[in-house]
């Protein structure tokens, strides 16, 4: 797996027909928890040609409540159907008291929250029969806690055996919004556990004080720089171009993907030269 793209229905045919080396696709499994129809038919065909990653957005592992057993069952069904190369979720919550909020909400990094999060990851991994990669969030508020996010993630990795999905756009967005240093964050991030990297674009909110993780713009130069720096330390890691809004034509998205692929290939050569 080299550099992949978030798969959107508008790009089904082009993705199916693409023979770009290293290409893989990522989907939100929630969009495929349906009885039948063209979505499943397209993904069936695409999965024959390219590796697939399932990137969940609604397990609410950082929530107050245990993961929804029906949702886990539906996700397990998709895992059995598509045999995804990667399965991931978020350090966030999105469901509370029977309501699904459709957004990745922050949690305080406390020891109580860590215990609960690890219980939820354990339960999900057992039900899914798979190791999950957990993604670092983009944050807009700084919540009181008793540990750093990177410590929280490192401890979750140690206790549950989960891996990590390092979203470099989220690192930048959070660093700007909470006035922190992105490099310092990466210096304490458990890079050994990283099984996937996300690259995406962000935009300033209308009053300009915060960066918003919109996935609606081309990847920013700061994110590309951080990507090169990260790969120099991790070696090549499957990398995804995540674009959900203002979807460009397939060729434009693939141009960004090809750039990531080229950076990955150089990282691979460097790793071989070091070996």
């Amino acid at each position: 797996m080299g550099a992949g793209i978030g798969l959107k229905p508008a790009h089904y045919r082009a993705a199916l027909e693409s023979d770009a080396p290293g290409l893989w696709v990522e989907v939100h499994p929630e969009n495929y928890m349906v009885s039948g129809g063209p979505r499943l038919t397209w993904l069936d065909a695409i999965a024959q040609r390219h590796p697939v990653s399932l990137h969940g957005v609604s397990l609410s592992l950082g929530g107050a409540d245990r993961p929804d057993p029906d949702h886990l069952k539906a996700l397990r069904g998709l895992i059995d159907r598509y045999r995804p190369a990667l399965v991931s979720e978020h350090l966030a919550w999105c469901r509370y008291d029977g309501i699904y909020y459709g957004d990745l909400l922050p949690l305080p990094y406390t020891s109580g929250a860590l215990d609960r999060f690890c219980d939820h990851v354990d339960e999900a991994q057992a039900a899914l029969g798979r190791t999950l990669l957990i993604e670092n969030p983009s944050l807009y508020v700084d919540l009181k806690g008793d540990m750093m996010e990177t410590d929280f993630l490192a401890e979750a990795v140690r206790r549950t055996g989960c891996g990590l999905l390092l979203d470099l756009n989220n690192v930048i967005v959070t660093a700007v919004n909470l006035t922190r240093d992105a490099s310092a964050y990466l210096n304490t991030f458990p890079l050994d556990a990283v099984g996937e990297i996300h690259l995406a674009g962000h935009e300033a909110d209308p009053d300009g004080s915060l960066l918003i993780d919109t996935h609606g713009a081309p990847i920013n130069e700061a994110v590309w720089t951080l990507y090169r720096e990260t790969l120099a330390r991790t070696g090549p890691v499957p990398t995804l171009i995540e674009r959900d809004n203002n979807l460009p034509p397939f060729s434009e998205l693939m141009a960004e993907r090809d750039m990531a692929q080229a950076i990955l290939e150089r990282a691979e050569e460097a790793a071989l030269a070091d070996a």
Partner: peptide, 23 residues
């Protein structure tokens, strides 16, 4: 529960409501 500024809270609220309207 905030350890810093509060201006980010409405970002979550707007995003949740706007997301539901879009869906």
């Amino acid at each position: 529960f905030a350890g810093g500024g509060l201006t980010g809270f409405p970002v979550y609220r707007n995003s949740v409501v706007r997301g539901a309207i879009e869906v």
